[in-house]
Design a protein around this nucleic acid. Structure first.
Length: 433
DNA sequence: TCTGGGGTCCTAGGACCC
DNA sequence: TCTGGGGTCCTAGGACCC
């Protein structure tokens, strides 16, 4: 906690819905709901007109429709949201070089790093109002709510107080007066599970939380969470505003309108997701060592399986091969509603760029989860594509058919390629055994 | 047909090494 | 024959955030 109110938190009001209303005048003044369009979708953002009907974020589309059937339901235009977000972040960076985006519609700004005459309450209040006006201007009419206080925690709490299109400045020294009457759920990190544990311990307000010893909170919530909450209950928060935070993982997942039971289809979907993960890794110059799949069963139980390579990869083919072998270990007979693939353990460099071709070739070797040690049919041509090793199943008219096999799931999928398809990377003689 | 998608952080147990 | 700690890495699951 600082002695000045120099941390600013900005939150764009009903951001996705507001962008839609800005771009489509016929939606202005009407309930607009972004998300919740698919069979199993949930609401991403509801405009304030829709919130009056009790529609809120994370509500199922089904329920949102029941509550507000005349709303405009939109699936979302993320390019527009990203572009608008970028404009806002530029405005924030004009104010201070130290800007920490939390999502497309939220950021912290360190006013202590800004070029201001002082950090008095009157000064930062004026800065906040000017900022809100500027955001309104550059976004073509979107409104933002701002909180300014002596820490990230208080700034964020403050920005919740006067939504939408408002601002709250917490004068230094008054933090605990503001916090004490509040419910514990205003603390970031206190969700339903933590709130319930605290409730059972008779703790509802931050004033009550403040009376609990640190040891007791750690016993109740674990080391990290307990210690963190003990501090926040005292308005102790010295977390700095950090401009550049590196990605820790990249993932793609999808929920399907009806449960999947066909393993071949699941493998195909994982393969496609893995390719997408690889593309995004390469686009950001990243590669990672741990491949994780996520499987949500029909009854919503969620499983994950992961495998760590000896060196990082950014190749969709490698990621997909591992993803499929991880899936092979799971029982999915009851049906699967969600499948996902992710890569973590990221290194922010690309191995080929650093070590050249020799290292790249070596990487292909080590990256295989296990050496191809299958018994191919006598005389078969063995090929590699992004699915891994397979053997030529048939050919003719410039097309080869390949059957892919893995040790875990024989027989594998059959796919056709044009003979000049670069996806068929190399031909190898069959192994001797 | 209740319950998205993209993330972060934490915990606990086991393997392994010194 | 029985019994150590500490540290690190990996895996699986869970809470939480927007």
């Amino acid at each position: 906690m600082r002695s000045t109110a120099s941390v600013l938190h900005l939150d764009l009001d009903a951001f996705f819905a507001a962008v839609e209303q800005r771009d489509k005048p016929s939606l202005r003044g009407k309930p607009v709901i972004v998300g919740g369009t698919g069979g199993r979708g949930v609401v991403s953002t509801a405009s304030y007109e829709a919130r009056r009907y009790g529609v809120g974020s994370a509500m199922s589309g089904r329920e949102a429709r029941a509550r507000c059937p005349h709303a405009a339901f939109l699936s979302g235009r993320f390019h527009a949201y990203r572009a608008t977000s970028k404009l806002v972040m530029e405005v924030l960076r004009d104010l201070s070089p130290l800007v920490e985006p939390l999502s497309l519609d939220e950021a912290f700004v360190d006013l202590a790093a800004a070029d201001l005459p002082d950090l008095e309450v009157a000064t930062v209040t004026e800065v906040g109002e000017r900022l809100r006006a500027r955001v309104h201007e550059v976004t073509g009419g979107l409104t933002a709510t701002v909180g300014i206080a002596s820490s990230k925690f208080l700034a964020k709490v403050a920005s919740e107080l006067d939504k939408p299109d408002g601002m709250t400045v917490v004068p230094p020294g008054t933090e605990l007066d503001l916090l004490r009457p509040m419910n514990v759920h205003v603390i970031p990190g206190v969700g339903p599970a933590t709130a319930e544990r605290l409730r059972r311990a008779g703790i509802h307000t931050i004033a009550e939380l403040e009376l609990v010893t640190e040891d007791e909170l750690v016993r109740l919530l674990g080391q990290a969470h307990g210690h963190g909450l003990w501090q926040l209950a005292r308005a102790q928060d010295s977390r700095p505003v950090v401009a550049e935070r590196e990605a820790k993982s990249v993932s793609v997942e999808g929920t399907y309108d009806s449960d999947l039971t066909d393993r071949r289809l699941m493998e195909g979907l994982l393969t496609r997701q893995a390719r997408e993960v690889g593309t995004r890794l390469r686009k950001n110059g990243l590669s990672g060592r741990t491949v994780t799949i996520k499987v949500r069963l029909h009854d919503f139980t969620t499983l994950s399986r992961s495998s760590t390579l000896s060196s990082p990869t950014d190749e969709g083919g490698t990621i997909g091969r591992i993803a499929r072998s991880l899936l092979a270990d799971l029982d999915t007979t009851g049906g699967v509603r969600l499948l996902g693939v992710g890569v973590s353990g990221l290194a922010d460099w690309v191995q080929e760029d650093l070590f050249g071709e020799t290292a790249a070739e070596e990487e292909v070797e080590v990256v295989l989860p296990e050496p191809p040690r299958r018994t191919w049919p006598p005389g078969a041509d063995v090929v590699h594509d992004e699915l891994g090793p397979g053997w030529v199943w048939g050919s003719g008219a410039g097309v080869v058919t390949v059957r892919f096999e893995t040790a875990d799931t024989p027989p594998g999928p059959v796919r056709s390629f044009r003979v000049d398809d670069p996806a068929l990377r190399r031909f190898e003689p069959p192994p001797e055994d």
